[in-house]
Structure formats: structure tokens, C-alpha cells
Design a protein around this nucleic acid. Structure first.
Lengths: 238, 238
DNA sequence: CAAGAGTTTTGAACACGTTCAAGTATCAAT
DNA sequence: ATTGATACTTGAACGTGTTCAAAACTCTTG
């Protein structure tokens, strides 16, 4: 949780400056929205020069990436305090709801997270490559969840389940962004409904009788994911 | 098919200029990609001034919108020659494959279509409002398909099916964009597999025994879509 | 302390999307 | 023909994201 995502920062002062800029950015994003916020205003608000902002964040989009990383770590921190012993369903419910709670303060501009979600480079792309560390970390949350759960799930399903749950969670976030009901109650209701549904579906799919159907579905999913992983493409690193 | 999407164009010469600019844009997009193409180069290539390009296309993104509209009309034109009498499955297969054939020439830069797909304004957004004419036209293709098919599908499912098929088709397009296999063979294989699956699924869901399950699933889908339709928001019109 | 090797910071400069006030073309009505 | 209205066209100007060469800082080593 301590390490900054930029390995190229060498001094303590540097880390501080970086944090200052990110903080300023989030504040102005919150006030004015992403598009309306200029890099100049961020730099000014942070008390640094324009060029300095670019020294730490290679582009305006990198600020979003950093934002996503930040909320991910907050999510992890929130999860750390969680008891491990409960049922799969209860844990899934908590993981998802904590995710939303973490994002809550940024509801107004969280939409930018998806701005580039269809871009092959983006870690949020459903068909994106697993090589991206941000994406991996994000899916790992669900990997832990699946592994720590005391349910019997067939190996084949267990292998794909983290990705599938991650995908489900992305769908929820997308819905949440559009959700203009007070306090996003609608989203929370949707989570209750769908987690219940998912839990039942997983139980059903784990039944030995369902093996052929499950196999076929998983083969399809695998094929879907496969296509993406042989794309070259530069990552968003500076 | 004849009417240009810009109602404000009054003269024949105007239509010509507009077409010229769009043609130039698509050519340079094809050569250099969307981001690398400047509005200045488009104007130059079309033999008009920069300001003139903006007279017909309010922004660079409007060019994408126009591009989408163009391929949609090409798709419609291709569909018009189709016999109506075949099975639902055969028709769905053809509709989807024709869509891909229509998009084929633009595979290299079609990714920009999804650039804004998560934006609430975008007609391609899964949770977007049905009020957008582009989106409506796009879904209407599947509405026609469902209605012209001589299969017995329960009313409740029939109502949602066009949207669901549209969503499915968007997924295929998204996959296709990432598909770097020669001639996008992978996508065509995927279409074969999934259309077969969908057809079976629809048959299954239409079975009276499945009524309760179907009802529950449809209620969920309805809830998903509902949330989007009470968002205000300006459209992308000039 | 001085020199030197990083590391961080600066602000001017550039290219591009977009806006707009002013100009030109077209054509119907007098 | 002249006028006036409407549609179209122009290019200069603005703001913004981004780049980069040079300056300033920091810290180790002699």
C-alpha cells in the first residue's frame, strides 16, 4: 500500500509533490468535473508549475489512472478489516458494497473511469490483457474472495470465477455511475438482487449434473478472453 | 436513406460539401487513425477551410457519429435485399454477419466508436437513454428481426429481446475490434457459436415451464434499463 | 567547502480542437 | 439590375494538453 505507482520518484520531497498534485487534481475534478479542469489550474492549485505536473503524471489521463489506483488501495484497506469466516455470498456482498462506498465521494466524476474502458490499452477493458498490473490487482481481490470462501466450487469454474466476478463488479460500477437515485439506493438494491442471483447460479453450476453445460459455457468464456491476450501494444507507462 | 443527418443543410452544394468532408475524414482516419488525424488535414484534404468543416460537423466526434450513421445505413441497405422467410436463427446470423462485413473496411479505426460508449450521452452506452435517434434506429434492426421471425416467443420476452440482441451485437463488435486474427475469423467463429447458443436459450426461455425464471430475469433487466431513462442530459446535436 | 551527478522544477513554445465575426455566393422578389 | 435574405465559407484568434531545454535544487564524494 505504501509504494507509489511511479517507480521513478526518488526523493521524499518528490513523493510529497506528487501527492500534492493528485490531491489538487481530485479536488478540482470534484468541483468542476474532468473535462472542465485544466492542467494549469491543477498545477496552480497544487502550487507547482505546469511542467512539474507533467513530470509526475505523463498526461491528464494518468491522473485518472492514479485516481483509480488510489480508490483501489482504499478498497483494499477497507477489506483488510473484514472477518474471513463468513459465507461466500456474504463476503461477495461486502466486497462489492465496500467498493461502492469507496467510490461514493467521487460519484460525480467517476464516469471518466470508463472514458477509455473500450480502449485496448485500458486496464478496465473487459477484453483487455491480464498483463496490466492495475487490472491484475483489481481481479486479485476476487481471486482472494474465491479462495478464502469455504464453498466447494469445481476447479474449472474456480479458475474463471475471479475474472467473471470482476466483470460483474465493473457492470455494477457502470450502473452506479448512471444511477441518479438518492444516495444511489438503486445500485444497492441491484447489488442485493444480483449477488443473491449469482450465488444461486454458482451453486447450480457447481452441481455435477451441470458439468457438460458448465464446460461449454466456460470454453466460450475462455475463447472470449483468449483473443485479447495476443495483442502487443504499449502500456500507459511513462 | 436519402436524408442527411443534418437538417440544417439547405442547398445541394451544401450536401456535397458535407459529403466531401466526411469522405476526406474517413480516408485520413483510415490512413493515420483517429487521434493522429487533425481537423486541419481533413479540411485541407477536402479542399475547404477549417471553419467550413466545423460548419457541417460541430466537433471531431460528430465525424464519428456520422461514420456510425453511414455504416448503419449501409447495413440497412444490405439487409433490404434479404429474404424474409427463413428461420429466426438464420436471420440473426445473417444480420450480425452483415454488420461485421459492413464494418470490415474500417476495422483499424473502428475502436473510436467505443471511445465514448460509457459516456451517458453516447447512443452506444448500454444504459443510455432510448431517446437518441441513432440508438433507436440501431435497435430497430433487431426489432424488425424479432417481429418478422416466425417463431413463437412470449410477449414479455419479445418486448425486451430487441434490446438484448442489440446488446449482444455490441459485444460482438467490441470483440471484433480486438480481434487481430486474419480476416477476423475468430469473430465469425464466435458468432456461429453464440448465435446457436442464443437460439437455444430463447427456445428454452420461451418454454411455459420457464415462465417464473424468465419473469424474474426480465424484471431484473428492466430494472437495469430503467435507471438510465430518467437522466436529463443534452444530446450531441449542434 | 567545491565539484559533480542525479533529481526535480520551471516556463516558454508548439500543435491541435474549437469559436466567431466578417466575408462571399445564391437566389427570389421588386 | 438592385436589393435583401439566407446559406455557406473563410481564417484569425483563443484555450488547452503536451513537450522540452535549461535552471535550480539536493546529496554524495573528495
Amino acid at each position: 500500500m505504501g509504494a507509489a505507482s511511479k517507480e521513478s520518484i526518488k526523493t521524499q520531497k518528490g513523493e510529497l509533490t506528487r501527492a500534492l498534485i493528485l490531491k489538487a487534481a481530485l479536488e478540482i475534478f470534484h468541483e468542476r468535473g474532468y473535462e472542465e479542469t485544466t492542467m494549469r489550474s491543477i498545477a496552480k492549485h497544487a502550487g507547482v508549475s505546469l511542467g512539474n505536473a507533467y513530470y509526475y503524471f505523463g498526461s491528464k489521463e494518468h491522473l485518472i489512472q492514479a485516481f483509480y489506483h488510489l480508490t483501489h488501495e482504499q478498497h483494499l484497506a477497507a477489506l483488510a478489516t473484514l472477518p474471513k469466516g463468513t459465507t461466500f455470498k456474504a463476503r461477495l456482498l461486502t466486497v462489492i458494497k465496500l467498493k461502492m462506498t469507496t467510490l461514493q465521494p467521487y460519484h460525480e466524476f467517476a464516469g471518466v473511469l470508463f472514458k477509455t474502458a473500450a480502449n485496448p490499452q485500458s486496464p478496465l477493458n473487459p477484453f483487455g490483457s491480464d498483463s496490466d498490473p492495475v487490472r491484475r490487482a483489481s481481479i486479485d481481490v476476487f481471486k482472494d474472495l474465491v479462495e478464502s470462501a469455504n464453498v466447494r466450487i469445481p476447479k474449472d469454474l474456480k479458475a474463471e470465477l475471479p475474472y467473471l466476478l470482476w466483470l460483474y463488479h465493473m457492470g455494477i460500477v457502470l450502473f452506479w455511475i448512471h444511477d441518479s437515485s438518492p444516495k444511489q439506493r438503486r445500485t444497492y438494491r441491484l447489488i442485493d438482487t444480483t449477488v443473491d442471483l449469482l450465488d444461486k447460479l454458482i451453486s447450480l453450476a457447481s452441481n455435477p449434473l451441470m458439468r457438460p453445460v458448465r464446460k461449454r459455457a466456460l470454453r466460450l468464456i475462455e475463447e472470449l478472453r483468449e483473443a485479447a491476450n495476443d495483442v502487443g501494444g504499449e502500456s500507459l507507462a511513462v
